[in-house]
Write a protein that binds this DNA or RNA. Structure first.
Lengths: 147, 147
DNA sequence: CTTGAGTCTGTAGTGGCTACAGACGGTACA
DNA sequence: TGTACCGTCTGTAGCCACTACAGACTCAAG
């Protein structure tokens, strides 16, 4: 570190983002092109903050393009605060719905899998309950469909 | 339909798999190379069964390579029935654990998002609760981390 | 004979990274 | 001054499971 700022390895540790991921984010323009000294990228605390923001948003399921929008909102002037919050809320709601849909899907999977695996131990069944479930010949509902 | 069997469009309808997906499955060897009459692929009911098996397995979260293994198990002789069932159970358990892990992740996301969105309506907060959550400056725990 | 629907191959794109190869930079220590 | 070694660079390709074309063909009905 010649004067100030830190190289990509330090940023990676601070933000808990993979080095390759950081370079990827730069490539797609999610973070600005880093200042260079020589060939090396050098970063500030502001860059680290931005990256931690991204990391948190990703861990909450936001898509890259949503995060792009959210980042833009953080930069809007204080006059736009209420608008920005409404926009952020709209994006978060979309994401929440997405998360809920995926939850419903996974809950259904969990139930069916748990059932089929349980049957392996419990049932004396002509054949394998798991393979039968997948073949559509086990515990079908009144329409002949798996739950 | 000249004699017997049906073309890919009919198979697509029967199995509820996209035509492109069926061709993709053939390309990666998940289903055998279809019999051809002229240039067109022709399929039997057995093919449709296999594809429905795959479709159900995918909808339960099994990965393609797991499905490859499961399909192999369905073809093992009746002598291997108990072994095959144990193998199927092992694969299903791996998948169930995977599903559970994803469920836990999504539940955490749902909780945080619901909280932050709720705060938008409830709280009089200096700034946007959602953006604050992502910035790490809202409702942090005793270690300063987001939940 | 034409029309229109179905099918064909091959390739490229999606999202969000991750993993190299092979070259270059910078520093600590002998 | 040498050298060892880690960090960083660019560029490209791979992952998963599809999906979406373009542009050519096949085939049956009218």
């Amino acid at each position: 570190m010649t004067r100030q700022g830190f190289a990509i390895g330090a940023l990676s540790q601070q933000s808990e983002c993979n080095i390759e991921t950081i370079r990827y984010y730069e490539r797609i323009g999610l973070i600005p092109r880093a200042e260079r000294r020589g060939r090396y990228r050098y970063y500030t605390n502001e860059d680290a903050d931005r990256l931690r923001f991204i990391k948190r948003a990703r861990s909450l399921g936001f898509a890259i393009e949503e995060i792009r929008d959210l980042l833009r909102l953080t930069k809007s002037g204080s006059d736009d605060g209420i608008d920005a919050c409404a926009d952020a809320k709209a994006i978060a709601l979309l994401n929440l719905n997405n998360v809920k849909a995926r939850l419903d899907d996974l809950k259904r999977m969990e139930a069916v899998l748990t059932d089929a695996i349980g049957a392996c131990d419990r049932d004396i069944f002509r054949g394998c309950p798991i393979l039968a479930t997948l073949s559509g010949t086990y515990k079908t509902d009144e329409h002949g469909n798996l739950p």
